[in-house]
């Protein structure tokens, strides 16, 4: 009887969890659509110079990505080896690095015709599948991995033609730490942010 009650409760909670995630799908869709539109809007502003446009893209990107989650994922098991201060300083420097390297890439996608094909649940995430159509060349499959954070949808990964940005980052960071240690990695990140 106790088991039956437990199982029933588990099933009920699972149903509520699935429904809650499904309710977030339109929010995830509009996040991606909104990102595309606002970047296009920034690029098409004729009164802004290139530097200002890039600064605005950086702010836009900073608002919609979950840099803390991405930093933790990218650092993997090494995150737990750092003390609180080191963790915070890694998250801070990684956020700057992320925005700095991703803003020009996002800018490259601006002005392109794009379609959102579908949004689906994958574990704790929502994957929004989109297609971009460059003027010269084949279409690019681009997926956005989205996670709920404090009732807001935030992007945690960009997956272009099957290549996940954050998976690649994790592989790269793990390899860099194994070869040179975490201090060298942070120094390298600082150097790259300053360039």
């Amino acid at each position: 009887m106790k088991n039956l009650l437990q199982n029933t409760l588990i099933i009920l909670f699972s149903i509520f969890a699935i429904q809650a995630n499904a309710a977030n799908i339109p929010q995830a869709n509009s996040l991606v659509e909104g990102l595309g539109n606002s970047i296009n809007k920034i690029i098409s502003k004729k009164n802004l110079d290139e530097k200002t446009k890039m600064q605005q893209i950086v702010i836009e990107l900073d608002n919609i990505i979950d840099a803390e989650w991405m930093a933790r994922f990218a650092l993997g098991k090494h995150f737990k080896t750092l003390n609180k201060d080191q963790q915070q300083s890694f998250i801070k420097i990684y956020r700057e690095y992320l925005v700095k390297i991703y803003a020009p890439k996002i800018k490259g996608y601006s002005g392109l015709k794009f379609n959102i094909i579908q949004a689906l649940e994958q574990g704790n995430f929502i994957i929004v599948k989109a297609e971009f159509f460059p003027l010269n060349g084949n279409k690019i499959n681009m997926n956005f991995k989205i996670k709920q954070k404090e009732e807001k949808s935030k992007i945690v990964d960009f997956i272009a033609e099957g290549v996940s940005f954050i998976e690649t980052q994790r592989s790269e960071i793990n390899s860099a730490i194994n070869n040179n240690g975490i201090e060298a990695l942070i120094a390298d990140l600082e150097k790259k942010v300053k360039i």
Binding site: G162, V163, E172, I173
Partner: peptide, 21 residues
């Protein structure tokens, strides 16, 4: 210019892309 370990970046991106293809 951007990678923290270019060898690992290329390896990861290549393997993911092939898996996708």
């Amino acid at each position: 210019q951007e990678s923290l370990d270019p060898y690992a970046t290329v390896r990861s991106a290549y393997l993911q892309n092939r898996q996708f293809e």
